[in-house]
């Protein structure tokens, strides 16, 4: 117990709660032919599970994407579709 701090503290770390992508029931799928690289999905993703590449194109980190669908909802080019996960 002596190595516990005085109160609960968390340090930033990738996925300290585990692979939260397992919680997903629907996955966002990007149609790169429609994508205009506006980065709105990247800005809105609360995790962040939308990864920005060097050329401002984006990809989804499915290990941590919980499938909330905010990116698909916000995308002005309708380039993201939510697809049901099937086991």
């Amino acid at each position: 117990m002596s190595n516990l701090p005085l109160t609960a503290i968390a340090y930033p770390a990738k996925g300290s709660a585990g692979r939260t992508g397992l919680w997903r029931t629907e996955r966002p799928v990007i149609n790169y032919e429609r994508c205009v690289k506006c980065l709105i999905c990247w800005l809105y993703c609360p995790e962040p599970a939308v990864v920005r590449r060097g050329d401002d194109s984006v990809e989804i980190d499915y290990d941590y994407c919980k499938g909330c669908g905010i990116c698909a909802n916000e995308c002005p080019a309708k380039a993201i579709t939510m697809v049901e996960e099937v086991s």
Binding site: P5, L6, T7, A8, A10, Y11
Partner: peptide, 24 residues
């Protein structure tokens, strides 16, 4: 030791699971 600091970012007053809450 627990003070927040921009050069050493941490989140403060986070969740404590049943295996640590009592000790706090």
């Amino acid at each position: 030791p627990y003070w927040i600091d921009v050069v050493d970012p941490k989140s403060y007053g986070t969740i404590a699971s049943p295996d640590t809450y009592m000790e706090f």
